[in-house]
Design a protein around this nucleic acid. Structure first.
Lengths: 351, 351
DNA sequence: GGCGTCCTCTGGAACGTTCCAGGTTGAGGA
DNA sequence: TCCTCAACCTGGAACGTTCCAGAGGACGCC
C-alpha cells in the first residue's frame, strides 16, 4: 500500500451540513434529508422552510457521506485505454449521455495503453467503490478482469475476452471486413489486399473476415495479406511491402483508419493515385475519415452505440435484473467516400 | 433537488472491512489502519500478519469512508468542454500524468459545450467534494466560476475569465498569431488574410494578434479578415468569402486546425493548390495537422503543459502554499509543414 | 370517550474509516 | 525493587449522511 497521507487537510472554512440546515429551518435532520431526496410526506410549509435554508446557506449535499451509508456511489468507472484515439470520443459520449439519464456520474480514467498502468487505474476505481466498471478496449490480462468481476459488474468494450464473468459489447469484425471486401468486389476489383492490425485487439478477427469473404467471392487466388498495425506507420510499411510485390493490388483493405492513412501516404509517394490506381478502405469511420483531404471509405462501428449498450449492460446488473453474462455484438456499416472507385482499366506500372 | 434514490442497494455480498482484517490478524482496527497508511511504529510481526490478512481477504480500503473522516477526497474534478476535440486529449494527458505523481485521482466530466450542462457537470463535481476543480475551456458564466471558487480551488484553462478568484492557464494567443503571420511574411507573402474563430474562446485575441503583427510588419494595407468559426464549415465558408474578393490572398491564417482544413477544401474546389497557390497556417497543432495528406503548418499550444500547469496551480492552493491568483501564460511555437511555402511568382487567376 | 388510522415528524443507529488520548509492555537505570 | 521511557498498541469519538422504528397529533368512526 502506498504511503500518501502526509498532507494535512486543507484549512478552508467548513461547509454547511444537513444539521446546519435543520437548525436554520427549525426541523430535524431527518426531515431535511427527506426534502433533499424528494420524498413524499413533508408538509408544504416545512418543505418550503428547508428549501429556503438550503438556499441561504448555499448548502450542497455531501455525496460522500451518502455513499457511505447507502453503500453505493452512483458512480460508474470507465477505463479508457487510449484517450487520444478519436474513436473513444464517440464511446465516451454514448456512455455519458445514457448515464446522465439514469442518474449516474461517470468517472473516466486511463492507463495510456500500458497494462500495468491500466491495472492500477482499475484498482483505483474499485477502491472508490464504483457501482460498475466499463473497460474500453483494455490491455490488461483476463485475470484482472475476473478479479474485478468479483466485486462489481464489469463490461468490456471492443475486445475479446475469455473472462466468463463479464458482459461485453463488441462490433462484428467479421461482418465489417466482409463489407469492405464486398464493396471492392462490387466495384469490379479482384486483387484486393489486406494490411492487418498486427497484434492489436480485434485485428485477428478482421483478418479472418477478409479471408472468408475473399473465399466466399471465389477470389481465394487473389488473397494477399501483409502485416501492419493500428498505426499510421504500420499502414505505411504494410503498403510498401505490397508495392514491392507483383502484381499490384487494385484495392487495399486496411485494419483501421489510421493504418489506411499511412497506406495512402505510401501509395502517393509511389506515384499511385487514390482511387484512380488503387482504392483504399479503412475501419472505424473516425472523424479522420471524414476530412475532405482524406475522404476515406470506411467501416463504421458505432462508438456511441457501443458505449450506450455497455452502460445498459451494467445497469441491468446493478438493478439486479440479470446475473448471467450478456454479449452484445453491434453490426457495422460501410460509409463510402472518395477513396474507393472502379479498378483502373489498365493497371499502372510503377515508375 | 432531483429525486433519484428509488433504486435499492445492490444485494452483492458485503466486501471485507478493516474490522474483518483486524479480526483475522488478531489486532485492533487502528493497527490495521496504520499499516494501510504505511505509518511507522508497527512491529514487523504484526505488519506481516496484517498484510497477509489483507491479501487473504482480498481487502480493499474504502476511500469513501476515508474521505468522509479526512474531509478531503484526493479527487480532482476536471470539466472538459469538448471531449472530441483532439486538443483536449493532450490537456487531459498532462493533467493525468501529474496527478498520478501527486497521489490524486482525476474525475473527468463534460457538458458537451452546452452552458447549462456544463454548469450541472460542475455542480456534480462539487457535490462529490472534489479537492480541486479544473475547467478546460468552459462555456459557463463567470458567476458560476466565482461560486465554485468559494468552495474549492479552481483553475480555468484556455479561456479568459474576469473571475478574480481563480487561477488560469492560457496560451499566448497574441504571440501565436504573430508567429503565424511572421512565418508567412518571412516566406515572402504580403497578402496574408485571416479567417477568425467567430465567438469561440480565444478567437478575439488571435484576431487581434493577427492585426498587430500585420501592422508591425508594415502590411496594414493588406489586412483582410473574414468571419469563420472553430469548425471545418466555418473555415470553408470563410475561404469562400475570401475567394469572392479581389485580389486573392497568397496566404491564409486560420483560427484553428479544423478551420484550416475547411479552408483548404474550399481552395481545392476552386482549383488552387496548397501551398503552390495559397499557403495555409492553422492553430493548435492537433494530430490532424500531422496527417501526411494534410501536413498543415500550425501554431502549437502545448496542451499537456497547459494541463500540467493547471494541476500545479491547484496543488499549490490545496497545500495552502498560495492563496492569491496565479495566471500562467504558455508560449506557443510554430510547427512548419507542407502547407506553407513561398508565394507564387505570378498569382494564379481563378478559373 | 375510546380506538384505530393516517399524516407528519423525530432521534438514534448505522456506514468504514481516521485520529487521538491514553494503555500496556518490557528493558534499562537508579 | 521501583521508576522511567520508549515502543507498540487500543478503544472510542468523530465525519455527514440515510434509514428505521416509533412518537405525537388530528381526525373519523363506533
Amino acid at each position: 500500500m502506498p504511503r500518501r497521507n502526509v498532507v494535512k487537510p486543507a484549512p478552508s472554512q467548513p461547509e454547511p451540513t444537513i444539521l446546519d440546515v435543520a437548525r436554520k429551518a427549525r426541523v430535524s435532520k431527518s426531515l431535511v434529508s427527506m426534502v433533499i431526496r424528494g420524498e413524499e410526506g413533508v408538509s408544504p410549509k416545512n418543505r418550503e422552510a428547508v428549501l429556503q435554508a438550503i438556499e441561504e446557506l448555499n448548502y450542497r449535499p455531501n455525496v460522500i457521506a451518502r455513499s457511505l451509508v447507502q453503500r453505493r456511489t452512483r458512480i460508474l468507472g470507465v477505463m479508457i485505454s487510449d484517450l487520444r484515439n478519436p474513436f473513444f470520443g464517440d464511446v465516451v459520449s454514448g456512455i455519458q449521455m445514457r448515464a446522465e439519464d439514469l442518474g449516474y456520474r461517470v468517472l473516466f480514467n486511463t492507463g495510456e495503453r500500458v497494462p500495468n498502468l491500466e491495472e492500477a487505474a482499475i484498482e483505483s476505481l474499485l477502491e472508490l467503490r464504483v457501482d460498475g466498471l466499463i473497460l474500453a478496449a483494455p490491455r490488461v490480462d483476463d485475470t484482472v478482469i475476473e478479479r474485478a468481476c468479483r466485486v462489481v459488474p464489469v463490461v468490456v468494450l471492443n475486445r475479446d475476452t475469455s473472462a466468463t464473468c463479464s458482459d461485453s459489447v463488441t462490433n462484428d469484425n467479421l461482418a465489417g471486413a466482409r463489407l469492405a471486401v464486398e464493396h471492392c468486389a462490387n466495384l469490379g476489383h479482384t486483387r484486393i489486399a489486406h494490411i492487418d492490425g498486427g497484434s492489436g485487439a480485434g485485428a485477428g478477427v478482421r483478418r479472418e473476415g477478409y479471408l472468408r469473404a475473399m473465399r466466399q467471392l471465389g477470389l481465394e487466388d487473389s488473397i494477399v495479406t501483409v502485416e501492419g498495425a493500428f498505426t499510421e506507420n504500420g499502414g505505411y510499411l504494410g503498403a510498401r511491402e505490397l508495392l514491392s510485390r507483383s502484381p499490384l493490388p487494385t484495392a487495399i483493405f486496411a485494419a483501421n483508419d489510421i493504418c489506411a492513412i499511412g497506406a495512402m501516404k505510401a501509395l502517393e509517394e509511389a506515384g499511385l493515385r487514390t482511387p484512380a490506381d488503387v482504392s483504399v478502405v479503412g475501419y472505424d469511420n473516425t472523424s479522420l475519415a471524414t476530412l475532405p483531404q482524406i475522404s476515406l471509405t470506411s467501416v463504421q462501428q458505432f462508438g456511441a452505440d457501443i458505449g450506450r449498450l455497455g452502460l445498459e449492460c451494467i445497469f441491468e446488473r446493478i438493478e439486479g435484473k440479470r446475473s448471467t453474462p450478456r454479449h452484445e455484438v453491434v453490426a457495422p456499416t460501410l460509409v463510402v467516400r472518395a477513396s474507393t472507385g472502379p479498378p483502373p482499366a489498365k493497371p499502372k506500372a510503377l515508375r
